[in-house]
Simulated scan of single mutants.
Amino acid sequence: MRVYFTLFLIIITSINFFAQELNYKIEENISYYPTNESGLTAYQRAQCRLDIYWPTRKKDVPVIIWFHGGGLTGGSKEIPQALKDKGYCIVGVGYRLSPQVKAATSIDDATAAIAWVFENIARYNGNSKSIFVSGHSAGGYLALMSVMDKSRLKSYEIDANKVAGLIPFSGHTITHFTIRAERGIPGEQPIIDEFAPLYYVRKDAPPTLLITGDRELEMLGRYEENAYFYRMMKVAGQEKIKHYEMQGYGHNMTSPAFPLLIDFIEKFKE
């Protein structure tokens, strides 16, 4: 009888423990530009906001900044369901979109959002030394651009190499097709300039996991440009980089890719 009572106490204690661990809160529509800044447009005030989903009873947890896809012309901030309740602080970021602004403005917004997270995430039990930047498609491109071009975060007095990891899902590594379209350049013509992550290949970049769909099912050239980025980073001397091809999946390969993101975070978190 005493054995059963002991087991009962263990089970009840475990249930209470996990109940506490899985207590999460969400705060929505936080502006990541100073709201008292007079130069902000109405569109910027409305669009440049983020949502935070975090565990309330656990401190210094890894942080995932997630940028939505949509070709820099559509989509809205989101916190992927697959990343919830895993012990992380999740930040879903909104940003301005073309044609309301030039598409490159999205990169400015992404950088501002990352800087805000570095400065404020401790209030939400996040660890500023364990910030991972990710996103799908256009969001993957923004993740890469805002960190690979070190000058962007440097303008906020943040060293881009303090980012714990980069995990773009099917992101452009050449200049984004919407930026090219604004210049009258067709999608079949690749460009590598200051708006291409490939332009900033360097040895000292944060650990990186490139995830793409099957090369035969992906969007035009998306697998190949990521493979080239991977190769050039290796040539530059970056050893902490991998490229994973989700065989059998096309561009919308987020669901089976999320476990790879989680494994990556567990490997490189502080």
Rank of each mutant, 00 (worst) to 15 (best):
R2K: 15
V3T: 15
T6A: 14
I11W: 06
I12S: 12
S14C: 15
I15K: 05
I15R: 08
F18Q: 12
Q20S: 14
Y24D: 12
Y24H: 08
N29F: 08
Y32I: 00
P34G: 01
T35F: 09
T35A: 13
T35G: 10
N36C: 12
G39V: 11
T41K: 03
Q47M: 13
P55E: 03
D60G: 00
G69A: 07
G69V: 11
G70Y: 07
L72V: 07
K77E: 02
P80R: 07
L83D: 03
L83E: 11
L83R: 09
D85R: 14
K86F: 11
C89L: 12
G94Q: 04
P99N: 01
Q100C: 01
A103W: 06
A103S: 12
D109C: 11
A113D: 08
A113E: 03
N120Y: 06
Y124W: 03
G126H: 00
F132V: 05
V133K: 00
S134V: 03
S134G: 13
Y141G: 00
L144H: 05
V147T: 14
M148Q: 07
D149Q: 07
K150N: 07
I158V: 03
D159C: 09
N161A: 10
F169Y: 10
S170Y: 08
I174N: 09
F177Y: 05
F177A: 03
R180D: 04
R180N: 10
R183W: 06
G184I: 03
G187A: 08
E188F: 07
Q189E: 12
P190R: 06
P190Q: 12
I192V: 15
D193E: 09
A196M: 02
V201P: 02
P206W: 04
R215G: 14
E216T: 15
L217F: 05
M219R: 13
G221C: 07
E224M: 13
A227V: 07
M232T: 06
K234S: 06
K234E: 09
V235D: 13
V235I: 15
E239Q: 12
H243I: 14
Y244C: 03
Q247P: 00
Y249S: 05
N252C: 05
T254F: 05
S255Y: 04
S255T: 14
L260S: 06
L260R: 04
F268N: 11
K269M: 05
K269D: 02
